[in-house]
Design a protein around this nucleic acid. Structure first.
Length: 710
DNA sequence: GAGCACTGC
């Protein structure tokens, strides 16, 4: 291994001679350089460059703290991999990671963000024509592929965190495998061919390779680097034809793993006992407890508070901090604040603390070994959340949270032999989710044979068939399984659930695109309304001013319009910033989740641009909401339900007995025929976001599914 | 009369 001894130590002399802010920045640059050189990956810079030069595909297994995400792109840039204007693209599964890493790397390069180094995520693109190191989400790169099927601007693509195996990462790997083959083996005359022809042409490429080779300009080959933190690189290596894998050391403090002697019957109770045990017997340091959901977190919080007065006074200095995704962000921020003097922080977290949020100061981790996951039942289309045991990889990830700043301890609330019985890794998302969106995107990329597509791991056959069927019934696919024109093509361009895309594509014919843009934006975000138990009455009164007797979709429309009107008025008299702040206050008064509303506004402006680019005319139905409800029927027809004599409903496509969720404005109304947005299974089958329709509309607008019954 | 892990375009 080449030694990477410091080669510019002579600069140190100069630094001491400088004064003022310049000296500060110089000192800072030096500090950055020192930090970079001390990273484990720095020792293998030269070796890595050689490996990338020699191999078109390289798997890098980098442990936590190796520095791979920030350093490798810089090594490649300095190693000449951006010659001829090529861009190094690095994908991340999460937005925050793309943003924070890009900022850090820009600083390390001494560049302004958006110049040499930038990031691009949905709603936010900081890159420019001079950007050479581009961090982005993997979903965004997939979208880019729809416009540029050969990803021609990239000379290197690094897929980071591939071990997480998100749907987007898996699809991206399949796409990149083909893109790379095409770019290294064939002429680029397809580059000028129409979008979406990429994989369809793949067959021709193989058979008429030489012929194609002689025409057109050749695209430069694509270097592909897959980075994973899991110790097992085999699956990636095998997928890429026995690709070379290299290992980069990490830098983590040791974490003591402790197990229970016996299996615990009640992990919540066991967690509670462990919290107190750590607090009373262990030295200073904060505690991170992994729980499965909000309910568990709130119940443990109450239990700890209840027991606290029973402790000796000197031992009562515990600060309990809950964190989960739906918590308002200002409350989430509390995990980053230091506890009051002498207090120990006990952080009660969901999976959010496993990868998304890194909390400083954690010395102890309590891991009951359970996690809540979404599953998918292809036959009913329901995606229930269930509590299951974690995988070994997950348990390791959790315990690692205790060793970031110093040696730590992890308490696994199960016996050691149970650990060995756990699955090695979590089942990839693609094997347990609805595939309709994935299939629509692959079709748009020209993959006609979905079952024959080279997935790193094959999805369930039944799930593929069910999703194809849905797309066919929506009119996105033709009889022979090809993307339909224009409906399928238009739908694939929209970053939405296929049913929502369908609603937009047909809204034009109902002259209600303006309204439908708002409705699908509001449906696309987490719940807009919140009703805290202690203020149930107040929140209900607030909702009343927006509610419509015709259903929740119109209620969402009214809400959006009311908020928009408020914001516009506010902007007339205040600065934009002040107006946004006023809007947040307005949200609070009206029991609306302002984060969700902001998200809906962002989606709205994006999809409005999308439909304009498609050349659709944005029409409005004005005061008459009938066309809007008919349009909902024309797109949500698979989610239709009829009232039964006992007051429950029968979902027409699945035959399931369902109930209107109590949060719906139609909960008491009980109309004869309705369409709904989603079916959730808890104690019962509940349907949410519902609108009143006429059964005859279904026969008229969805004859492929409904006929007049004799 | 009910509660929902986490991401992403």
């Amino acid at each position: 291994m080449p030694s990477m001894a410091s080669n510019n130590s002579t600069h140190t002399v100069k630094v001491n001679q400088l004064n003022g802010p310049k000296a500060d920045s110089h000192a800072r640059r030096q500090k950055i350089e020192q930090h970079r050189k001390a990273l484990p990956i720095a020792a293998v810079e030269k070796k890595l460059l050689e490996e990338v030069s020699k191999n078109d595909i390289l798997i890098i297994v980098g442990e936590t703290g190796s520095g791979k995400t920030t350093q490798l792109p810089q090594y490649l840039f300095n190693g000449g991999f951006c010659r001829n204007g090529g861009v190094i693209g690095i994908t991340q599964p999460r937005r925050v990671a793309a943003v924070t890493v890009a900022k850090r790397v820009a600083e390390e390069c001494g560049a302004t963000l958006g110049q040499k180094v930038g990031y691009s995520i949905r709603f936010e693109d900081t890159t420019s024509s001079s950007t050479r190191i581009k961090y982005m989400t993997d979903g965004l790169l997939l979208r880019e592929a729809l416009l540029d099927p050969y990803l021609s601007k990239y000379s290197v693509i690094i897929v980071d965190e591939a071990h997480e195996r998100t749907v987007q990462t898996d699809v991206l790997l399949g796409l990149l495998k083909t893109v790379q083959k095409t770019r290294s083996s064939s002429a680029s005359d397809h580059a000028q061919s129409e979008n979406g022809a990429l994989l369809k042409k793949q067959e021709d490429v193989r058979s008429t390779n030489i012929l194609k080779h002689s025409r057109g300009k050749k695209l430069p080959p694509l270097k592909l680097i897959i980075m994973s933190a899991s110790l097992d690189a085999r699956i990636f290596s095998e997928y890429f034809g026995g690709a070379r894998a290299v290992h980069v050391q990490g830098r983590q403090y040791p974490v003591d793993i402790l197990y229970t002697r016996q299996p615990e019957t009640d992990y919540v109770d066991a967690a509670l006992i462990t919290i107190f045990q750590i607090h009373l017997e262990e030295g200073p340091g904060d505690v991170l407890v992994f729980l499965t959901g909000q309910e568990e977190i709130e119940s443990i919080e109450r239990l700890v508070q209840d027991r606290l007065p029973k402790l000796p006074e000197s031992k009562r200095k515990l600060s309990i901090i809950p964190i989960f995704a739906s918590l308002p962000s200002e409350k989430q921020m509390k995990v980053f604040l230091p506890a009051p003097d002498g207090f120990r922080k006990i952080i009660l977290a969901t999976n959010i603390a496993e990868t998304s949020v890194t909390i400083p100061g954690i010395k102890y981790v309590v891991d009951p070994g359970m996690v809540k996951v979404r599953t998918y039942d292809p036959s009913s289309g329901i995606e229930p959340l269930i509590i299951v045991k974690t995988s070994k990889a997950q348990a390791l990830q959790r315990s690692g949270r205790a060793g970031r700043e110093g040696p730590g301890k992890c308490y696994r609330l199960y016996p050691e032999n149970e650990f060995y019985k756990l699955k090695d890794s979590t089942m990839p998302e693609i094997k347990r989710c609805n595939l309709s969106n994935v299939i629509l995107q692959l079709k748009a990329l020209g993959v006609d044979d979905i079952i024959g597509f080279d997935f790193i791991e094959e999805p369930d056959r039944m799930a593929i068939i069910k999703s194809m069927e849905l797309l066919f019934l929506l009119g996105a696919l033709t009889d022979d399984g090809k993307l339909s024109d224009p409906v399928g093509h238009q739908m694939s361009r929209l970053p939405l659930d296929p049913i929502y895309s369908k609603a937009l594509v047909v809204a034009n014919q109902f002259s209600c695109l303006e309204e439908m843009l708002i409705v699908v934006s509001m449906l696309s975000v987490e719940s807009i309304f919140y009703a805290p138990r202690e203020k149930l009455e107040e929140s209900r009164t607030a909702l009343k001013s927006f509610s419509s007797t015709e259903g929740d979709h119109l209620t969402l429309l009214n809400t959006y319009r009311a908020s928009d009107e408020f914001l516009e008025k506010s902007k007339l008299v205040s600065s934009n910033e002040k107006a946004e702040k006023n809007l947040r206050k307005w949200c609070k008064e009206n029991f609306i989740n302002s984060r969700s509303l902001k998200h809906a506004r962002d989606i709205h402006s994006q999809i409005r641009r999308n439909v304009e680019q498609m050349g659709l005319c944005i029409t409005s139905c004005g005061e008459d909401m009938l066309p809007l409800r008919r349009c909902l029927a024309a797109s949500f027809f698979l989610n239709a339900a009829l009232k039964q004599p006992d007051g429950t409903y029968r979902a027409l496509s699945s035959g399931l007995t369902v109930q209107i969720h109590p949060s719906s404005v139609l909960f008491r109304g009980k109309p004869e025929c309705i369409i709904f947005d989603e079916l959730v299974r808890t104690n019962q089958n509940y349907i949410r976001n519902i609108s009143v329709i006429d059964y005859l509309w279904l026969i008229e607008l969805a004859p492929q599914c409904y006929a007049l019954q004799e």
